[in-house]
Nucleic acid binder design. Structure first.
Lengths: 240, 240
DNA sequence: CGTCGCTTTGAAGAATTTCAATGCTTGTGG
DNA sequence: CCACAAGCATTGAAATTCTTCAAAGCGACG
């Protein structure tokens, strides 16, 4: 067993310790060694490369170490519906657990490093490490909560509210990683944002425009600065 | 172990792949028998009585035996957003697992009998019954999938598609319970449907009207007859 | 009988989509 | 090194869908 507290002992994974969404957190130090066994590290993915496709058999879940990933389901007519964006420290791939095959396709949005957490190993360890098991169930439960917040958002909110909510969400998630919550580069295109939020590209573009006029953000293409996080937050949660 | 529906790979769940909203809002206990050990029965709830409130500490999950339940989160402004309807045989309450307290309030839509599945028991049994553990994780995973299908639906679909999807969903879920998939009484009001689908009451009413004109359904208040299930299915999954 | 809760219907208004066109970057081959 | 294509972002104007506002109908229940 390696002495490292992070999956493969490199220093690049230090952020794993900070993030509530990253797996090692719920484990005691003594368990860490065991976890090392579970993790498999792959080579970095390039933009547009996929982690798994719809229908691929479920092998386990994945953690984003750097970069970003989108998950999308395929509609009856072949169009894609993005169901989530995953930032560093976050875990995706649960969707395959129920039926043994993935319902989503997961694709790198930019150059991205991921860790695999194989299902069989996870299963074994669930017996010997009750904490790990609980932790994983908590992670799933949290994803459930996130999706439901998203449902609420899509159900009731205007275009501006949706975009505000996404920006705030990204900001919060970056903050957990000790990254700047106010200045960042979006890993996804306007079209992808629109797809995710149930709006057209044009609408996204216009909303970004309005936000800039209102001095809520500064945006240069994908480089975003949140100028009034507070107001964005209010905007996203107020409901009319 | 009885032959279950989807979880163990029987072919009976084909429509799950066809319909974006299939097994729509909730999940199914594949084998109620397995659960008997863990279950605590409560007294039936009356309409508007709650199973748990937002913020209540998580004690476990619940299965609907008869009647129907809605789960809803509370927006910043105090309005409610319905996140799911649960019909007989379906399990709800996972939302509390992540943080130890529920993010939703669960309310009976009509006179409803539920079973509690206490968390501590579930935890003990997770060790001794790996099957049960896997099963629960599968159920959670499935709820995730359902929520994501719902996301897709809300993101992209017109009012008619949403309503069609909900009707088809309910139909499929009733069918699984060996109840009539074409004639049923909706447990929820138009307002609740609208809330769930992100539409106004008036829009729901008008869509029901249009569906009747088109001979897709017959509706007398909450008593619904699906006259053209096939077409509704197509409508809900076709994307333009 | 009258009120309350729920549903329906109409007409006007608002927000977003659609269609169409243009500009800006980036990268690639000549 | 330039030119051109491809992908992404922006902008305008018209069309559409859904919401909002207003009013009325219907049933159940005290």
């Amino acid at each position: 067993m390696s002495t490292a507290s992070c999956p493969n002992g490199t220093t690049s994974c230090q952020n794993c310790r900070m993030n509530p969404l990253c797996l090692p957190l719920a484990l005691q130090v003594s368990d860490m060694g065991k976890l090392d066994v579970v993790i498999e590290r792959g080579k970095p993915l390039q933009r547009r490369e996929t982690v798994f496709f719809v229908g691929d058999s479920y092998q386990g879940v994945y953690a984003v170490r750097s970069g970003a990933v989108k998950a999308a389901i395929t509609n009856a007519d072949g169009t894609e519906q993005i169901t989530g964006f995953y930032l560093p420290g976050e875990i995706f791939g649960w969707d395959g657990l129920a039926e043994g095959r993935h319902t989503n396709t997961a694709t790198a949005l930019e150059t991205t490093a991921i860790c695999a957490i194989p299902a069989d190993r996870m299963d074994e360890l669930s017996v010997t490490l009750p904490d790990l098991r609980r932790h994983f169930m908590q992670l799933m439960s949290r994803e459930l909560a996130v999706d439901q917040q998203m449902l609420a958002l899509l159900s009731k909110s205007s275009a501006e509210q949706r975009v505000a909510a996404l920006l705030v969400s990204i900001s919060n998630r970056l903050a957990r990683q000790k990254l700047s919550p106010t200045r960042f580069r979006l890993p996804m295109s306007r079209a992808e944002i629109g797809n995710y939020l149930g709006l057209t590209v044009e609408t996204i573009s216009r909303v970004f425009g309005r936000f800039q006029q209102k001095q809520l953000i500064a945006a240069d293409k994908r480089d975003i600065t949140l100028l009034a996080l507070e107001q964005l937050q209010t905007l996203s949660s107020d409901s009319d």
